[in-house]
Design a binder for these strands. Structure first.
Lengths: 219, 219
DNA sequence: TCATAAACCGAGCGCGCGATCTATTATTGG
DNA sequence: CCAATAATAGATCGCGCGCTCGGTTTATGA
């Protein structure tokens, strides 16, 4: 007899996913051939298809990993005492992977593939809903604490916060000269001015005005 | 003898491009087969390849058309007397196609394809540079007129204005419930608060404060 | 030790793709 | 009217793809 070792099995799957990751990011899902994945993973096609039923399953596993990891760390990021500070932490955390070379093109590829693949669409949709919930809660708390413009609808504003973060990924994926880490202060400045609204009316909460952001984009 | 009629020839090409447009938007470039394009255009494969050397050329022609049309109308939009009003016109004009059903997925598809196709990348890059130049000029003028925060770098801010507009397309392409026309006021509100900066210091220009935007996102 | 099943290999299959080729029809200038 | 050639058709081709399948090797429990 011989039993499967779940740890070994998972590690082998992960090895394949990692190999495919770079290919999917640089070439896209469709143009990446299973032969390329086999070569990159250093194993035969027979073996790769021993671990995954088809190419699509490899892509889904890749996104599932990202989703799990993100959800796990999101819970920690929002655990700040001050809503506004917690919001900035969440934004910084969600925007951080845009600085990695593979994440932006992969994210775009995932969005496009989700357009035709219902299972993928469901996966990303859950992911987005989770983020939206967290951010909406933080915005609601921040509004209650008088830290942001109370006239903004939290859910509505939250979706725009997410859109702003997403634009870090699209910019990084499309413009080679775009530097996500360097642009983060500007992102935060835009969010601050958008969410706080008229500063002389609403800057009464626990968070102090953050002049550092404004000075970061000065010429 | 028989000469080609340029008008007829161009019209026939356009007919093929129009047929392919919907397919590319809904299925993506790779998954759209030449057979589908032939069927949609109502002609044989032999005839389609009489007008285009290959599938890629159809996609490029599609984007070239969009670019020409946009560049033409952009020149008109920026011809306003007041820089801030002209900027809003340009933003509205650039964001408008996001409300069409095909434009958002097509734009995303184009971005991704440009990642691997140098010719496509060149096409979109020129396009972006043109937009950036126009917006940068308007921001510079607006800053000189005291209508926006003078501490912002015009070129830097312009690229974020474009990113904001682009997020209308990505949101429209990824979230079925996203309503571009309805979200336009919020986009303008974000831009206004970002660009004007501290309102009590800089709201001295020709454009009056636009409370209508703020009220549009109130719950 | 040895039976058993997991892990792995790589030749190759079937299919559908982008593109071609030859043939036929329509249209124009002279 | 008659070449000449554009416009159109559609069968077909070669290739490369995702994936399968039979066989071999390796590891594990009893």
């Amino acid at each position: 007899m011989r039993t499967i070792d779940p740890a070994k099995h998972a590690a082998r799957r992960q090895h394949i996913v990692n190999a495919a990751c770079e290919l999917f990011a640089t070439q896209g899902f469709e143009r990446t051939t299973t032969a390329q994945i086999c070569k990159a993973a250093g194993m035969s096609s027979g073996n790769v298809f021993h671990y995954f039923p088809n190419k699509r399953a490899i892509f889904i596993a890749l996104l599932q990993d990202d989703k799990d990891e993100k959800a796990e760390r999101l819970a920690a990021a929002k655990a700040g005492a001050d809503p506004w500070a917690a919001l900035l932490d969440v934004v910084r955390f969600l925007a951080a992977p845009a600085a990695e070379p593979l994440a932006p093109p992969l994210a775009m590829e995932a969005m496009l593939q989700a357009h035709r693949d219902p299972e993928l669409a469901e996966l990303l949709s859950q992911d987005n809903t989770d983020e939206l919930t967290v951010i909406t809660e933080l915005l609601t708390e921040a509004a209650a604490a008088g830290q942001i413009d109370p006239d903004l609808d939290p859910g509505h504003a939250a979706s725009w916060v997410m859109a702003l973060i997403a634009s870090m990924y699209t910019s990084a994926a499309t413009e080679p000269s775009f530097d996500p880490a360097g642009q983060l202060p500007t992102l935060l400045l835009i969010l601050e001015r958008f969410l706080r609204g008229e500063p002389h009316e609403h800057r009464t909460g626990g968070a102090p005005p953050r002049e550092t952001n404004a000075s970061a984009v000065a010429r």
